[in-house]
């Protein structure tokens, strides 16, 4: 048997393909898939959530409140103070379940309305708030998300994000997705703002302080994190002012001082 020396054929075991082209095709395909899934799920969840009865909503909330891990230090005076504001506001908001407030240690100013009737407000946010009116507005705004069932509608998005992170097992991608999953749409934020104004009216018969916090925020660079989940501050300030003006709402009383300075 004779041995015939021959160089290996480069084309047999390696497909001659353009990786960039392949990458672009796949990325377009995946984004199409995701957007279709996104549309279907968000539309169907918002349809279900809007037609849900109060009882079902209560049941859903109870389901999540038991699994919620919040550091509720009930002896903490600051938390008790926030809780008392929320409890008072709930007589105006008339939510069918109790709301629990907790403070998270994050330095980035932000507040969230979460499943299980929990409002989480960051230490960074509390530091920026200058009077009780502003605090009431922020808490009222978050209660607005509960009133409009925004957090339930967000569940649909959560499912999609969970599905994506299944396919893309990348820790930092997951982090980014979970961050964005907490955000609400611009129109949801705007209607929550209006709910916040109504809450202030109900509580203080005055709307002072509803726009002042956001006005400071839109001028401050530190808010970039908040901007990521609460878009277009400037537009929101304008909308709040427009709402107050067009409805001839009072904004004349003096602002109430905070009972605690959150430092």
């Amino acid at each position: 048997m004779a041995y015939i020396p021959k160089l290996p054929d480069d084309t047999v075991n390696v497909t001659n393909s353009n990786f960039i082209e392949e990458m672009l095709k796949l990325v377009v395909g995946v984004s199409l898939l995701i957007s279709v899934a996104f549309l279907v799920v968000t539309l169907s969840t918002s349809l279900i959530v809007e037609n849900m009865s109060l009882k079902t909503e209560q049941k859903l909330q109870a389901l999540f409140s038991s699994s919620l891990e919040i550091d509720t230090n009930s002896s903490n005076k600051e938390v008790l103070y926030l809780q008392s504001i929320v409890d008072n506001l709930n007589s105006c908001a008339k939510l069918p379940y109790d709301i629990t407030v907790s403070i998270s240690n994050h330095k980035e100013p932000n507040a969230f309305a979460m499943m299980g009737g929990a409002i989480v407000i960051t230490k960074g946010m509390l530091k920026e708030i200058q009077n009780e009116n502003e605090l009431t507005f922020v808490l009222g705004h978050e209660m607005g998300h509960f009133k409009h069932r925004d957090h339930l509608k967000g569940l649909g998005n959560g499912i999609i994000f969970a599905m994506i992170s299944l396919f893309v097992p990348n820790s930092f991608v997951e982090n980014i997705l979970s961050l964005n999953a907490l955000s609400y749409s611009q129109s949801q934020e705007s209607s929550a703002d209006i709910f916040g104004i109504e809450m202030m009216l109900c509580r203080y018969q005055d709307t002072l302080g509803s726009a002042s916090l956001f006005e400071r925020m839109s001028k401050n660079d530190k808010w970039s994190d908040f901007l990521a989940t609460h878009p277009d501050f400037y537009t929101r300030v304008l909308e709040i002012k427009k709402y107050i003006k067009s409805n001839n709402l009072p904004a004349t009383k003096e602002s109430r001082e905070l009972r605690y300075s959150f430092e």
Binding site: L26, V27, V30, L33
Partner: peptide, 10 residues
Amino acid sequence: RVLAGLKNIF
């Protein structure tokens, strides 16, 4: 790896 990961889907 990302390219292969995307291939996993299709």
